[in-house]
Design a binder for these strands. Sequence first.
DNA 1: ATGGTATTCAACCAATCGGTTTACTACCGT
DNA 2: ACGGTAGTAAACCGATTGGTTGAATACCAT
Lengths: 121, 121
Amino acid sequence: MSEDNLSRAFAALADPTRRDLVARLTAGDATVGELAAPYDVSLQAVSKHIRVLEDAGLVTRSRDAQRRPVHLEAQVFDLMTGWIERYRRQAEARYERLDAVLGTLDESAHPRSTTQQGAAS
Amino acid sequence: MSEDNLSRAFAALADPTRRDLVARLTAGDATVGELAAPYDVSLQAVSKHIRVLEDAGLVTRSRDAQRRPVHLEAQVFDLMTGWIERYRRQAEARYERLDAVLGTLDESAHPRSTTQQGAAS
DNA sequence: ATGGTATTCAACCAATCGGTTTACTACCGT
DNA sequence: ACGGTAGTAAACCGATTGGTTGAATACCAT
């Protein structure tokens, strides 16, 4: 489940309008109409964007009469930072080891180059 | 420059094959051929994926004879975690304030609901 | 110079995306 | 029941995406 979710989450945030919607939702829940107002695209387009964010698990919608308030969900952000940080740290750790080796050999510049494969997902 | 870069970075990581490539590159630089080997898609397809990662600033390529070693760049990851964390924290801060208010009023559940807009980028 | 190795470029294809417009559904107020 | 308000669904369109195959380029080895 997670693998696909991660793809949808990253894809959802690849669009500047959707990132902007997320940014605005950190200030509090909002209706589709309120969210659509600032943009010059149609309400339907914004509704679609919200659907994408919802499918990615970034937001949820409830019902309040004919209004459908949109609410930001924080968990998926953790999933993404988790993924990014995992590999960023691995990469950094590797460079630290490399630096250590180079330091031992007392070399000046960092002419990095190594080989080989790694792990999954 | 940053706005567009962020879009490309998120879009790049929205593809599972590309995330896998990134994962493997944390173990060290690798050539296109080495990177392509584990997948059943064509070498050209992998070459294209690497191009996308490069355009997003996630990797760089150097030259070593006819080989083009691919190297992972950590900075763009920081850009992404930066964006995510900014809004995640804002959202969390808001809930803490809300919890505080609800706590003062001594209510049991968390029937969240607020309104209004926020900021840009 | 000839051939092999490593990689990209180019043209093409089906599928998805972000947008549109024109309906339709859902709920409230009176 | 009637009209207005809030939102979704459906059909369509041009652009982009991820993949393919075939041809080109860049470099090393002999």
